[in-house]
Design a protein around this nucleic acid. Sequence first.
DNA 1: GGAATTTCTATGACGTGTCAACGAGGTGTA
DNA 2: TACACCTCGTTGACACGTCATAGAAATTCC
Lengths: 149, 149
Amino acid sequence: MDAAWLSEDEEHAWRAFRRLLIALPARLGRDLARNSGLSPADYEVLSTLSEKPNRRWALKDLAAKMEWSRSRLSHHAARMQGRGLIDKEPDPQDARGCILHLTDDGFRVLEDAAPHHVVSVRSRFLDHLNPDELAMLRKLSTRIADLPD
Amino acid sequence: MDAAWLSEDEEHAWRAFRRLLIALPARLGRDLARNSGLSPADYEVLSTLSEKPNRRWALKDLAAKMEWSRSRLSHHAARMQGRGLIDKEPDPQDARGCILHLTDDGFRVLEDAAPHHVVSVRSRFLDHLNPDELAMLRKLSTRIADLPD
DNA sequence: GGAATTTCTATGACGTGTCAACGAGGTGTA
DNA sequence: TACACCTCGTTGACACGTCATAGAAATTCC
């Protein structure tokens, strides 16, 4: 349909890249679910929370850090709380606020998940790139991701 | 968390690429919704159906072509039928089967959407790659997407 | 021909993400 | 102080994708 407005090269590159855009996250997500029972979103929340020394982060700040909407994080945090991965505490600085806290269980789950996830990222992605490709991909990814929304 | 098992270069490249993996589809999807009221999934169904001369495709074949599960396409087709973009016909060859047919309305919507979508793909992606990058990206995307699941 | 098996679509439950709206709480200003 | 305004998290409705399952029809095999 839109072939007419892309050159042959652009068309092929775009089609190939679009396949990657779909296949790679799907594979990593399946690996994660199979190995650890986590969704990619779960993993991101857990690993971002674990970066803080006290494993605590205000909801709004965590949302901003991950570039999620507050609504999304609120929904997701509620589900993760139900599974005992995190819990919520009132924010002493701001009565509207909410502090998310990585539980010991959540931390253990993350510790178990992380090495498998690294193997997955390697075997499904990094291992198949040479250093030049890695460098170029990083440059181009940064350039495009940094464009305004 | 997993930084320890990736080299500095790998870590940075993976982080940058992951941002692209999230940001690019989100931007294209927002453009599509704003310009045409279509989801990316809608657009894929419409444009794939439009490739057939008679605008008809058996559900199972369309699903295979797009690499979707049949369940996904069945759900999605039901929603699209509700909006008048496609309709369903019995398959004369196979009484279990189902032929999806792009309606005139659906075709018009696609015709309106396509040029905007091309502009979007250009302005958010293709315009920011030089020919070398385009070629390398195509090669690497094909290589990785072609890995077994 | 007839039974077992496979193929095909539909469906319901569930987790997920977006959007719009809400109420409660903070902030700034007259 | 009083008021308007903004920020924070939650909620409900909806679209979406996956999985397991069901039921009908085709195919295979004896």
